[in-house]
């Protein structure tokens, strides 16, 4: 982490909004923050208009804690609920047309790699299940086949939340939604299986029950994408509006769904596994060395 890219020129700080000053003084740019430190530092995500108690909001909040290099990351999103919050974070955001995210991210990542040879730049696509599994499906699949080195995060609320409740490919079979009155006709798409087939280096399925695990998983996916190849996280982030979940029960629902059909599951390609094992070893060695110095 480095403050260099966000620190204003001398004399300008006092004219910037309080929120920005707080980011310089107490923000996450000083060093990688942990989930256990939440509440004690200024988070990169600001106020936004997503619904009260939305699990997707919680997940996005944790992404902003987990990203291993906030100031060298570009997030690519699109239409859908998530972008209402993602755009309020202190990380550059590129709005791909609905369906285009993984094509836009491909160009971005390749361009950044040419422009910044000595500074790794992370590109992260974060969008809904409709945006990625339905309308953006071809671009997602082809970015995987081409082994593009960025992370795709699907905010899977199993519905088109932002447009009032149409079923998506990720909705469960039989589900009756406001704008799918006769029920979803087909099985939920197996995007994790497709990712594996397409040669994705790392995949994870996760729910919103364990914040530390969410942060670790995102970090892992971004670091593996940087070095090895495409990574994919499919996160159950319920829509309490379209699924009529009372907000105090949102985490209970996440726990039930996790137990029932959305358990935490990871897959590593051989290359990703050996890269990750090596880098874990290296981190352990560094921690030990740091302890010795202390």
């Amino acid at each position: 982490m480095s403050l260099k890219t966000i620190r204003p020129a001398t004399g300008f700080k006092e004219y910037l909004p309080k929120e920005y000053q707080d980011l310089i003084d107490d923000g996450p740019f000083l060093r990688q923050r942990k989930v256990s430190e939440l509440g004690s530092f200024k988070e990169a995500i600001e106020e936004h208009p997503m619904c009260a108690g939305c699990a997707m909001t919680l997940f996005i909040r944790l992404v902003f804690v987990a990203l291993p290099s906030l100031e060298h990351t570009v997030i690519c999103g699109t239409a859908g609920c998530g972008r209402l919050a993602i755009t309020q974070g202190a990380v550059p955001f590129v709005y791909g047309n609905y369906g285009d995210t993984n094509a836009v991210a491909t160009g971005l990542k390749r361009g950044l790699d040419i422009r910044f040879k000595d500074q790794p730049k992370d590109v992260v696509v974060m969008a809904g299940d409709g945006g990625l599994a339905d309308i953006g499906f071809h671009a997602v699949m082809h970015s995987w086949f081409r082994k593009e080195k960025f992370t795709t995060i699907m905010l899977d609320n199993e519905v088109y939340g932002n447009t009032g409740g149409q079923d998506s490919g990720m909705t469960q079979k039989g589900m009756v939604m406001k704008m799918a009155p006769t029920g979803k006709k087909f099985e939920k798409m197996d995007m994790l299986g497709l990712a594996k087939t397409a040669g994705v280096a790392y995949t994870a399925r996760i729910s919103t029950t364990n914040p530390t695990r969410i942060a670790n998983t995102i970090r892992k996916a971004v670091l593996i994408a940087r070095e090895v190849g495409p990574t994919f996280i499919q996160a159950y982030t319920s829509c309490n509006i379209e699924y009529a979940i009372p907000t105090p029960k949102v985490i209970d629902d996440a726990r039930d769904v996790e137990k029932d059909r959305y358990g935490f599951a990871e897959y590593f390609s051989d290359e990703a596994q050996s890269y990750w094992d090596e880098s874990e070893k290296e981190r352990k060695r560094l921690r030990k060395a740091a302890k010795k110095i202390k």
Partner: peptide, 18 residues
């Protein structure tokens, strides 16, 4: 404890006085 600080969906909302 600090547990609620990790589950509030909103950023910068439950703060913690160390």
């Amino acid at each position: 404890c600090r547990l609620c600080t990790q589950f509030c969906p909103e950023g910068n909302t439950i703060l913690y006085d160390e």
